[in-house]
């Protein structure tokens, strides 16, 4: 099994985000030097001042689109990139900053800035896939470095990356955790959230807050209805669904539905 001979030319781009997802690559300490050996790092501002012009074979895109300028920049990056992978909740769902999508942007700007006229920002924070075609989405806030390495490995080998799409519950139970919702009544998004984090929140005695976004094929309403019947206030369910992946459709729609009930 021979991998394609040429090392893919890799670029890492950033939009509105915290930098944490691209840091995941630098956090792969044991494999970092091997990984950078597999690819030709052409553009990765956080790691190196070496900048090589496009086009790029692979682009990792972090962050969401929140400014008119970024709306244009992502189009250019798409044109320059062979395989475009979005990494993290900002890029795949708009991130925490997508909370502005439910607010009045002017109010938001005035809350934070004394001179609002200087702020050039869109009224929404949206996922990269809302703007350009995306070849693969890696979820998480932040992403899991092992999944990122798998993605890079897969690309080098010329195959489709393999990340699992089941619920957090399966990982949670395999670690021997007790279901926190059943045993304590605390709301947990594990049943409707995609695997990837290693079920850390329930492992640390707290409910999952959904940072890997919705799992494939979920019945969010069944869970929220049940939690509300069991005593969770609808007003508490809304922010639970509306945080780092509030822009992901199933979470967004369900939070809107519950909000309309209150």
């Amino acid at each position: 099994m021979s991998a394609p001979a040429a090392r893919p030319k890799l670029a890492v781009f950033k939009f509105a985000s915290c930098d944490g997802c691209q840091l995941s690559l630098l956090d792969a300490e044991d494999q970092l030097l091997d990984v950078v050996g597999l690819v030709d790092i052409a553009y990765f501002l956080e790691a190196t001042s070496k900048i090589v012009d496009g086009p790029y074979d692979v682009a990792l895109v972090e962050g969401s689109i929140t400014t008119p300028r970024d709306e244009e920049r992502i189009q250019e990056i798409r044109r320059q990139s062979g395989y475009l992978i979005t990494i993290g909740a900002c890029a795949t769902a708009g991130g925490i900053q997508a909370l502005r999508n439910w607010a009045n942007l002017d109010d938001f700007i005035r809350t934070v800035y004394a001179s609002p006229q200087y702020i050039s920002s869109l009224s929404t924070s949206t996922a990269i896939a809302d703007h350009v075609a995306v070849d693969f989405e890696l979820r998480g806030c932040p992403i899991n470095q092992y999944q990122l390495i798998e993605v890079i490995q897969a690309l080098v080998a010329g195959r489709k990356p393999h990340t699992r799409t089941h619920s957090v519950c399966m990982d949670c139970k395999q670690q021997g955790n007790v279901c926190i919702t059943v045993a304590t009544g605390e709301p947990c998004l594990g049943p409707v959230t995609q695997s990837g984090c290693g079920a850390i929140c329930p492992t640390y005695n707290r409910g999952c807050y959904g940072c890997y976004g919705p799992a494939k094929q979920i019945h969010a309403q069944s869970l929220t209805d049940h939690l509300i019947r069991q005593g969770t206030a609808p007003a508490e369910m809304v922010p639970l669904l509306r945080n780092f992946n509030s822009g992901a459709e199933p979470f967004r729609d369900e939070s809107n539905r519950i909000e309309s009930l209150t």
């Binding site: 619920s167 399966m170 019945h219 069944s222």
Partner: peptide
């Protein structure tokens, strides 16, 4: 429609 498919 009630099942979450969560595997629990």
């Amino acid at each position: 429609s009630r099942c979450l498919g969560c595997t629990n």
